[in-house]
Every structure is written in structure tokens, then in C-alpha cells.
């Protein structure tokens, strides 16, 4: 009797938990189906050319998402490079040189950094970073590296570079914390072994720690990249909102998320609105793709750690 009741309550409990999971499935189903349903007109009108079209011109009913895709990827890539170098360096500093007294404080401050909202970064970017880029940063880059097409052309302040810098700052806390976690997983015996063989700390990092954590770091990088792709408000405030494709990082651009902010509520014809929903669908696919890849990579590392 007692046993029977116990079994019963467990079933009820499991059922209750499962219902939570089903609600989640419902959410995702609704989100994806609404995006597909609303963008159907655009999908059937433009087909694949929606992704390759370079012109976004509501007046002529031409909707191509390539400039937004380009702006999204390039600005995220700039942010990623910066965040990987700076964040990776910081993570090494905090794990491998952890006798330093400020490690605890730095960890706390990085946690604080992670809580600052996107819109505040946008505000800071608009009034502090962009004027600095316009008056000092970009003219300097142009004077020193101007022969590279990346750093040529008119200086605006706002643009892909500004958006990339902001994204880089926003990615830092994630990259640092994931990389730190991965480096902590490197077996201590291996590290001690390297030191015992006479390696300097630098050599230990280069030959033991980094190779061990490589795949996981790649995962962290993809994870941050996926996040950056969907970052909206801060990017919208500094990217320049110009749907053009240009080789120079100084030039204004536009991203998938920011064109939604500036135009979604404003679309007054069916095809226009439908195309914006399709922009959302493209953004979803790109972001989810990178998110899944990163999760897979991080999972592989922890799996390996468990086996070892």
C-alpha cells in the first residue's frame, strides 16, 4: 500500500515537471512558427535572393538582407577578435598568475561588468566612445594603417568599428569566465610536470594549458559570437544605420537586429513588414547556429575531462 502510494506521487511529480518542459517546447514552437508564418510572403516573393540581395529599398520593393548580414557578422567579428585577445589574456593572468592579490577583486569587478545593461553601453558608446573614435582613434588608425583598405575612407565615429568595440567589451565577461573555467580544468599534475621540467610560466601556458583547453576556448569564442550577433540596442546606437557593404571598418553599416529596431514598427506595407519578419528569421537561424556549435564544442571538452 505504502509502496503503491509512493510510486503514484512520483508519477504525479514527474508529470508536473514534464508539463514545464512542454510549455517550453510550446514557446519555441510558437516563436518559430510565427516568424515563418509572418515572413511567408517575403520568402515566397524573393526566395533565396533575399539572402544575396544587396539593396534594401522599401520604395522600390526591393528587400535584400546581405548588407545587414554583413554588418552583423563583421561587427561581431571585430568584437570577437578584441574580446578573445584581451579576455584570453586576462583569463590567463587570473588563472596562471593567481598568486596576485587582485585576483579576487578583479573577479568581482568582472562580475559587475557583466551586469551592466546593453542600453547603458549604448549610451556610453554614443557619448564617450564615438566622439573619441572620431577625433582621435580613427584619424590615428588612418594615419598609421591607412594603406590597408580596412582603415581607409571617411572618418565618422559611428560605424562598424564602434559597434565592434562595444560588442567586444560586452563579450569580455563571458569569454573570461568560460576560459577561466576551462583552464581550471587542466589537470594540476600536467601543469606541475611542466614546471618540474623547467618550463617558465609562459611556456607552460603555451605548451600545456592552451593546447589542453583549445577546443573549449573555441567553444567559448563561438558562444560569445552567437550572443554578439543578436545584440541589439547598443549596436543600433553606434553602428550608423546605413545598409551598405563597405570594406572599410570606419564606414557606417547596419545589422539584422538594428534594422528591426529602426523599421519594424514603421513598416506600412505587407511585403515590407513580411521582409522584416524574415530578417528576424535569418537572425534566429544565424544566432542559433553559432549557439549550437559552441554548446557542442564546450560539451566535448567537459566530456573529455570526465573521461580523463
Amino acid at each position: 500500500m505504502n509502496k503503491f502510494r509512493k510510486h503514484d506521487s512520483d508519477r504525479l511529480f514527474a508529470g508536473a515537471l514534464l508539463s514545464f518542459a512542454l510549455i517550453l517546447v510550446l514557446f519555441i514552437f510558437v516563436i518559430i512558427s510565427v516568424l515563418i508564418e509572418r515572413s511567408w510572403k517575403s520568402i515566397t516573393t524573393f526566395g533565396f535572393s533575399f539572402l544575396t540581395g544587396q539593396t534594401w529599398n522599401p520604395l522600390r520593393h526591393m528587400y535584400g538582407s546581405l548588407p545587414f548580414l554583413y554588418g552583423t557578422l563583421i561587427s561581431s567579428l571585430i568584437g570577437l577578435v578584441l574580446a578573445t585577445v584581451v579576455g584570453g589574456g586576462t583569463a590567463i593572468l587570473l588563472t596562471q598568475f593567481n598568486h596576485l592579490r587582485f585576483v579576487k577583486l578583479a573577479t568581482f569587478l568582472l562580475d559587475v561588468l557583466a551586469t551592466i545593461p546593453s542600453v547603458v553601453y549604448g549610451l556610453w558608446g554614443l557619448f564617450v566612445l564615438v566622439p573619441w573614435l572620431r577625433n582621435t582613434g580613427e584619424p590615428f588608425l588612418k594615419a598609421t594603417l591607412g594603406f590597408v583598405p580596412l582603415f581607409s575612407g571617411q572618418v565618422w565615429g559611428v560605424g562598424l568599428l564602434a559597434a565592434g568595440l562595444i560588442l567586444g567589451i560586452m563579450m569580455l565577461p563571458t569569454i573570461i569566465s568560460v576560459v577561466r573555467k576551462l583552464m581550471d580544468q587542466v589537470p594540476q599534475e600536467l601543469q606541475d610536470g611542466a614546471i618540474a621540467l623547467g618550463a617558465t610560466r609562459t611556456e607552460k601556458v603555451r605548451m600545456v594549458v592552451l593546447p589542453y583547453a583549445r577546443v573549449g576556448i573555441l567553444g567559448a569564442v563561438f558562444l560569445s559570437f552567437g550572443r554578439a550577433l543578436g545584440e541589439t540596442i547598443a549596436v543600433t546606437m553606434v553602428i550608423g544605420n546605413s545598409p551598405t557593404i563597405s570594406s572599410s571598418l570606419f564606414q557606417p553599416g547596419d545589422s539584422l537586429a538594428s534594422v528591426l529596431v529602426t523599421q519594424f514598427l514603421e513598416a506600412s506595407t505587407h511585403l515590407y513588414l513580411s521582409s522584416l519578419y524574415e530578417i528576424g528569421l535569418v537572425l534566429l537561424i544565424v544566432a542559433v547556429l553559432f549557439h549550437s556549435v559552441s554548446k557542442f564544442l564546450v560539451w566535448r571538452v567537459s566530456e573529455r575531462a570526465r573521461i580523463a
Partner: peptide, 21 residues
């Protein structure tokens, strides 16, 4: 996987869908 999908979804898309519904 679905929970991860939702976690990786840009928030602005949630805004669009809530607007639509």
C-alpha cells in the same frame, strides 16, 4: 536542445513575436 535554442535566441525576436501575438 530546445532550452538552449531559447537561450541563444536574440531578445528582439521575442519582442517581435510578442508584438505579433
Amino acid at each position: 536542445f530546445i532550452a538552449e535554442l531559447l537561450a541563444g535566441m536574440p531578445s528582439i525576436l521575442v519582442g517581435m513575436v510578442v508584438y505579433a501575438i
